[in-house]
Every structure is written in structure tokens, then in C-alpha cells.
């Protein structure tokens, strides 16, 4: 039995230790905001926070997260930072098909928490592990820039 914290709640699972955190989140806990893109750590669609650090849930065997604090996109939705990112992405037109967006928002939130006023280069670096096949990234970069200005330290 593996026990950990998921979006603030203590949870347990008897899934095998090698199960991917991504599958556990989507299939067992029905948190389907976290997406599977490549399944190889190259696209960032499955990004979550593990002890407040951005990580790819497709690469995490759940046996390694016993006792850890996991947050998914569903877990940050009530935060002020999320609200500002949400608004900024829509103003900048940062969302088209939307599949990459939960991962993009997680990467954006991780970046802004660490570096509240990033340069454009730092924004691009912050989302460098996240692929978007619609926007060409410029609108996403603009959205994060906007959120940094509005959030001013959030």
C-alpha cells in the first residue's frame, strides 16, 4: 500500500509500485486534467508538482512517491495564481486545442513561483519541456508575461 498526499488529501493505493503516477491520477483518482502526450517525458502534458517541483508524471513510478506531496492542475485551480494565469492565457489567446494547457499552466505556475518577473528568455526556458502544436508558443509566452505583470509576485 502506497500512501501520499494528493491535492491536499492523504490518499492510498494498492496499485503496483511501477505504475506510472500519470495512470494512477487519471484512472484511479479520475483527475483527468493531467494529460498523456508522448509518455516519454518530452512533451510536458502530464506535468504535476511533486513536493512543489515540476515533474513529468509519466516518468514517475508510484513506489518512489510514498509520503510525497502531489499537486495536479485540479489542485491549484482555486489559487490566486491560477486565476491570473487563466485570465492571461485567454486574453493573450494562448489556448487553441487546449491539450497541452494543463501542463503549460503547471510549468507557468512553477516558473512564476520561483521567478515572479521572468524575462522572455526565462519564460521560454520555463516552458521548454512543454510542447504545443497549435499556437507556435508566442501567445503562450505573452500570456505568462501578462500573468507576471498582473500577478506581481504571486
Amino acid at each position: 500500500m502506497i500512501k501520499f498526499t494528493l491535492n491536499g488529501r492523504t490518499v492510498e493505493t494498492d496499485a503496483p509500485a511501477t505504475a506510472r503516477l500519470l495512470d494512477l491520477l487519471r484512472d484511479e483518482f479520475e483527475l483527468i486534467g493531467t494529460k498523456e502526450g508522448c509518455g516519454e517525458g518530452e512533451c510536458g502534458a502530464c506535468s504535476v508538482f511533486v513536493n512543489n517541483l515540476l515533474q513529468n508524471s509519466c516518468l514517475i513510478p508510484i513506489g518512489s512517491i510514498a509520503g510525497a506531496d502531489i499537486q495536479t492542475i485540479e489542485g491549484i485551480i482555486e489559487t490566486e495564481q491560477f486565476k491570473i494565469l487563466d485570465e492571461s492565457y485567454s486574453i493573450a489567446g494562448g489556448v487553441q486545442c487546449g491539450y497541452c494547457i494543463p501542463g503549460m499552466i503547471m510549468a507557468s505556475a512553477a516558473l512564476l513561483s520561483e521567478n515572479p518577473h521572468p524575462s522572455e528568455a526565462e519564460i521560454r526556458e520555463g516552458i521548454s519541456g512543454n510542447l504545443c502544436r497549435c499556437t507556435g508558443y508566442n501567445m503562450i509566452v505573452e500570456a505568462i508575461n501578462l500573468a507576471a505583470k498582473k500577478g506581481d509576485g504571486l
Partner: peptide, 15 residues
């Protein structure tokens, strides 16, 4: 696990 999880990857939902 960033290499080993890819090396032994199964189909979706399967460890």
C-alpha cells in the same frame, strides 16, 4: 526513473 520508465514502457494504463 526518467530513463528506466521509458525503456520498459507498456501501453497506456499498464505499468
Amino acid at each position: 526513473g526518467t530513463d528506466v520508465m521509458v525503456l520498459h514502457k507498456s501501453r497506456r494504463g499498464v505499468p
